[in-house]
């Protein structure tokens, strides 16, 4: 009989847990990745930290709601938003046309460059345009020229990148026939594989590459080639919400605008990225 008692207690408990979650309505759940330093990452002991955790707290205070930030695997993060696992995504996610087909974005709260990183002794360290910036929207010809200059050096190399990102889409679009693309679940994993020598270079956001370079285990790593933005690389990092959630989008838009206006974004990006990444325009 004990068995059945245990069963019914278990069932009751899970029913209560479900009901309980449905009852709390005024809490917004925000998904982040928790593996994308310094945007969002997991610190010692398993606590979520980073730019977006700070920003979420600030924005939620402006909207006057209670927010809970949860970590979520990147590759299912959009389908799970639409499956109503949470209400919003703040995970270093860029606005792209492809994503706009399935979710809505607020106005951007940060923007930055994307590029390669490799080991210092690698021939790829000499990729053209280090320190330069190219924009696929504003000056497509110049950007295309830099990409063409990379091709001879990149020929036949294996490049690691995180799957379902603007970075993997950039590689697919411009360098698919030149390099072998290997897709990882997190940027941390391709960092490890670059250090282990399983890939020749990695392609990611400069902000995240720089955070990796700062760690002692990766002192042999360096940024290579020009930084690129725009086009498939997106139009800045924003909060993603479900398409039918116009109310929440509106609230976030207002809060982000206010945070840009009073310099909160500039202050927070300085704190986490050591450079002002406030979106322009």
């Amino acid at each position: 009989m004990k068995f059945f008692t245990a069963l019914s207690v278990g069932l009751l408990a899970s029913a209560l847990a479900t009901g309980g979650a449905a009852a709390q309505e005024k809490t917004i759940t925000i998904a982040t990745e928790g593996a994308y330093a310094p945007w969002n990452f997991t610190g010692a002991g398993g606590k979520l930290e980073g730019f977006e955790i700070d920003l979420a707290a600030d924005l939620c205070a402006r909207i006057k709601v209670k927010c809970e930030v949860v970590a979520q695997d990147w590759d299912g993060i959009i389908p799970a938003l639409n499956a109503k696992k949470y209400d919003a995504i703040m995970a270093g996610m860029n606005i792209t046309d492809k994503r706009l087909e399935v979710v809505a974005f607020t106005r951007p709260y940060a923007s930055g460059m994307h590029g390669f990183a490799t080991t210092k002794d690698s021939p790829l360290a000499k990729l053209a345009g280090l320190g330069e910036r190219a924009n696929l929207d504003k000056d497509p010809a110049a950007a295309q020229k830099i990409i063409e200059e990379w091709k001879p050096l990149l020929k036949g190399k294996t490049i690691g990148t995180q799957g379902s990102t603007v970075n993997s889409q950039f590689l697919e679009k411009y360098l698919k026939d030149t390099v072998t693309i290997r897709e990882y679940k997190t940027t941390e994993q391709h960092d490890l594989d670059l250090a282990a020598g399983r890939v020749d270079a990695i392609y990611a956001a400069h902000s995240s590459l720089k955070a990796t370079l700062d760690q002692p285990e990766f002192k042999n790593m360096t940024i290579a080639g020009a930084g690129v933005s725009g086009g498939v690389l997106g139009r800045g990092v924003a909060v993603a919400v479900r398409k039918d959630d116009a109310d929440l989008k509106g609230k976030f838009d207002g809060a982000i605008q206010a945070a840009i206006a009073d310099g909160t974004i500039a202050k927070l990006t300085q704190k986490w990225f050591k450079v002002d990444m406030t979106p322009q325009g």
């Binding site: 928790g34 593996a35 990452f41 997991t42 610190g43 010692a44 398993g46 970590a71 997190t186 941390e188 994993q189 960092d191 490890l192 250090a195 760690q215 285990e217 990766f218």
Partner: peptide, 10 residues
């Protein structure tokens, strides 16, 4: 948790 820790601490 191990996965997170492995990523965080390398």
């Amino acid at each position: 948790q191990s996965h997170i820790a492995a990523g965080s601490t390398r």
